[in-house]
Every structure is written in structure tokens, then in C-alpha cells.
């Protein structure tokens, strides 16, 4: 029987892979993809928790977790649009998408 733990372990593993992507890739677009993978793993955990939640006083379960996922997806879409246009502006100005070359603000 597949329980909550299975989904949460899967979510944790995928989140860690996204974290590795963010830390280890140097291309700004791949870094963004890592962020998306992490958001997606969090969504999986939210839906799984919603499915294994105890019923409320009236015996039904509200789909709160799924509504949260809906919001997360909307925020992720906004974030990706802005971040990708920043990547394009970066490429136009500095002719690179390597995060190591963009160190103007580093002390």
C-alpha cells in the first residue's frame, strides 16, 4: 500500500535534486529550471498531505492543499516570466548567461 511517506520521500528526493541543479549548474536558465523542480516537489508534498489529512468535524476534507498548489503554479508562472526576461536582458548586456561571470554586485 502506498502511504504518505512514499510521496514525501519522493518529494524530498526531487527537491534535493532541484537544489543540486541550482547549486551545481552555471547556466542561469538551468538554475531557473532547478528552482522550478523544487517548486514542483513542494506541490507534490502539498497534494499528498491534502490526500492523507484527517477529516474535519463534518467528516469531509477541504481541498485546501490543492488550492495552495493552484496558487503556487500561478506564482511560479509569474516568477519564470520575469526571471527569463532578466536572463535575456543579461545576455543582451553582458553577452553571457553564466552566473559566475555576473559578479558585479559581489563584494
Amino acid at each position: 500500500m502506498i502511504g504518505l511517506e512514499h510521496y514525501l520521500y519522493l518529494s524530498g528526493v526531487v527537491f534535493t535534486l532541484g537544489l543540486c541543479g541550482v547549486m551545481m549548474r552555471r547556466n542561469v536558465i538551468l538554475v531557473l529550471m532547478g528552482v522550478e523542480i523544487m517548486l514542483n516537489a513542494a506541490n507534490l508534498a502539498l497534494v499528498a498531505f491534502n490526500k492523507f489529512m484527517l477529516p474535519g468535524a463534518d467528516g469531509t476534507v477541504a481541498p485546501d492543499g490543492q488550492v495552495f498548489v493552484f496558487f503556487t503554479i500561478a506564482v511560479a508562472a509569474a516568477e519564470v516570466a520575469v526571471a527569463l526576461v532578466i536572463a535575456v536582458a543579461l545576455f543582451r548586456r553582458l553577452d553571457t548567461v553564466n552566473v559566475d561571470d555576473v559578479a558585479n554586485l559581489r563584494w
Binding site: G3, V47, F49, K51, F52, M53, T60
Partner: peptide, 10 residues
């Protein structure tokens, strides 16, 4: 949380 899935259908 419980070990058994509830009957929520999204």
C-alpha cells in the same frame, strides 16, 4: 495526518 487516504476528490 493518517496512514490511510481520505476520500477527497479534487
Amino acid at each position: 495526518v493518517q496512514s490511510r487516504a481520505n476520500d477527497l476528490e479534487g
